[in-house]
Amino acid sequence: MKHPAPILTIDHLFVRLPARQGMVRAVDGISLKLMPGKALGLVGESGCGKSMLGRAIMGLLPKHAHVSEHSEIFFRNRALHRMTGKQVRKIIGKEMAMIFQNPMSSLNPVMKIGRQITESLNHHLAIKKKDARDRVVQLLRAVGIGAPTQRLGQYPHQLSGGLCQRVAIAIALSCDPALLIADEPTTALDVTVQAEILDLLNAHQKKTQMAMILISHDLSVVAGRTDETAVMYAGQIVEHAPTAVLFQNARMPYTRALLDAIPRLSDTAHADLKSIAGNPPDLVDTAPGCRFSPRCPAARTKCKTKAPPFTHINGTRYGYACWYPLESHGAWPMPSCTAAGGQ
């Protein structure tokens, strides 16, 4: 058990999207490993490529996207990048599932929710319609829906956003996937509902030892709910660390700046927030050097001319991409599962 095989390995993934100004480097050389049963938080500002990364894993990229030939994605030791669309579709929904930001649009508006879940079961597990019903009720109860039998006959528009997201989660979890990608699952929801949904995902993830990638623009969403966190900036991973470590001891100035920009309940009122000056860079004509250097308070000449490589810490998967990382205080604790489960 010392070195379990990763469930997902991404190697040198490049995704480019054509736009009027040229090719947008949406994902620009990402390598990542995810261990089974672990939750990874993927954080970054809008347009940093985090959703494209999620879609690339699921084979859900837009038709006109270009994936570099050298990009490799392995899922359970199978090379997704070499599979045909048909082969990938056999895996999606069954072994790998995804939930999206807008639950309303991921559900079919003209189909009763009971049938939508049944179809998924029917399609992937070849469960007969009659047997499926019991399982659907069980699933809906598992995602915290109070009166499942009533809800079966309802249409998505009759449910609130939070309930719709629960149904979308039920569909995603229906085949017990080994990997769940949650792309901003709570951004469209209210705070109270957000907390419930995140707890639900967290509890299920811990219970079934499912691997999960939680994509969010909000660092506080992944805090305490993931084992490790990767921070993306301009199509690249700039820091990757165990979540608890990242929040206490960020090495990359961008991570620090993102953390500092969050308004906190513990802050004094009317305090000036530390914002990050400027805007994220243009992903078409990328300048040489560190992509964050134009906004970085600690940038020096080297940062503007040479792109920093991803520095691994102590030979682990973790590390950062920065020439002048922030000081590390204390020993770098090894990853330990610190995320708390909900009830």
């Binding site: 705070v191 608890a244 929040f247 969050i262 906190r264």
Partner: peptide, 9 residues
């Protein structure tokens, strides 16, 4: 207040 996500776990 309790539902506000805590950025400092």
């Amino acid at each position: 207040l309790a539902a506000v996500p805590d950025p400092d776990p």
